[in-house]
Amino acid sequence: MERDRETIGLTAENAGVLAEIEERGWFLEGQDIARFCMAYAIRAKLPEGATSGTETRWAAGNFDKTGEIRALLAALYPNCQTPVRLMEHLVNEGLRMVVSRVRSSDSVGPAELMD
């Protein structure tokens, strides 16, 4: 069985995306952006997967202090055996999806992302 990871990382490209979103001042810190993007990807029914070539950004324990995310992924992705890898994948894919939406128009703000 594949071993899960203990940290969540970003690809180099997504590290830039995170900085780009951070600069807009909608979020207090990077983790808030990452969680938001992860949720954005889940809501978009992104299938299970894994992202390679990432560089560590956060400890999984810190990223999901209450264990809610892990439980949620267990419920929504019942076949997943590596929830942290999935978390990482969802964060990275979510970042791509969010930035693509934000870049599409000047009128897209945080409120529009939540619609």
């Binding site: 979020f27 808030d32 969680r35 938001f36 949720a39």
Partner: peptide, 14 residues
């Protein structure tokens, strides 16, 4: 206020 609210944004999305 927005940043504080967006900290819980992921919960709203889900």
């Amino acid at each position: 206020d927005l940043q504080r609210a967006m900290g819980d944004g992921w919960r709203s999305l889900l």
